[in-house]
């Protein structure tokens, strides 16, 4: 049950997007997200839509999977549409007492919701095509230059690595403690919300104690294996840029420039 949860949403494959360096993907995703906010006209939205389609195509992910990424956030998308539809001034399409929907509102609502959908799809492409481990390496490498300003790049990456390693172990343990307590008559699945939350307490206490014990043992084991922070550390897997990384970054930059030009030329 609990142990079935897979971490992240990595979908293995060997498409163009899968093969990109994680640093390229992170940076390109950030630029793409920024450029989404440059779009203001229908033509610009059309260009954006085509680019998102192209990116999805390059990832060779099943369309269903990509569509599913929007699902958990549909409430926010709908809410965005509703708020814009009701609150933008313009010619009224529908009026009832003090509520009115305007034509400009509907238009604005559709565009805003589209922006959100693009944003969600693009960022989930990053997590679909990059395993959490590689993603961690990428983040560490990108943050590394900021170390001299006091950003603990290595420490953050090590924390993420250990979290990735131990989340399944802790889930397994939670499952075990839960079963042990259910066997002794505990009830985790009935009652109202507050009661259920209360029932979780006897689950959390042993879990926390064991997590701290694990942390302590792991620290000793890491020290025994000569761990002494990020200084002078080397890595088994070294990230290396390939020509395709240049192509991807160039593409995203060209898109951003095109959208910026469209915005200022009013197309």
């Amino acid at each position: 049950m609990l142990t079935d949860i897979t971490l992240g949403q990595y979908y293995p494959g060997d498409s163009f997007l899968h093969k990109l360096d994680p640093r390229t993907k992170i940076v390109a995703t950030l630029i793409f997200i920024c450029s989404i906010f440059l779009a203001s006209t229908y033509v610009a939205y059309g260009v954006l839509f085509l680019s998102v389609l192209l990116a999805v195509g390059l990832s060779r992910l099943p369309a269903k999977l990509v569509a599913r990424s929007v699902k958990p956030l549909w409430v926010i998308v709908v809410l965005t549409f509703v708020i814009h539809a009701f609150s933008t001034p313009g010619a009224a399409l529908f009026e009832w007492k003090f509520i009115s929907i305007t034509d400009a509102g509907v238009q604005q609502g559709v565009l805003m919701s589209l922006r959100l959908v693009f944003l969600i799809v693009v960022s989930s492409l990053l997590t679909y095509t990059t395993s959490p481990i590689v993603l961690t390496d990428g983040i560490e490498s990108l943050l590394n230059p900021l170390r001299r300003f006091g950003v603990p790049a290595h420490e953050l990456a090590m924390m993420m690595t250990i979290a990735l390693r131990f989340i399944p172990t802790l889930l397994e343990e939670t499952d075990r403690i839960m079963k042990a307590q259910v066997a002794r008559g505990a009830d985790f699945s009935s009652g109202h919300l507050l009661k259920r939350a209360k029932n979780l307490l006897p689950l959390l206490v042993p879990l926390f104690i064991s997590a701290f014990r694990r942390a302590d043992e792991l620290a000793v084991a890491m020290e025994a294996r000569c761990y002494r922070g990020g200084e002078n550390r080397t890595r088994l897997h070294q990230l290396a840029y390939a020509p395709r990384d240049g192509v991807a970054l160039g593409g995203v930059l060209a898109l951003t420039l095109a959208l910026a030009w469209m915005r200022w030329s009013g197309l």
């Binding site: 694990r214 043992e217 025994a224």
Partner: peptide, 11 residues
């Protein structure tokens, strides 16, 4: 060490 789980660092 004794506990195999608590000495493996990477995923």
């Amino acid at each position: 060490f004794q506990n195999p789980d608590n000495q493996i660092v990477a995923a």
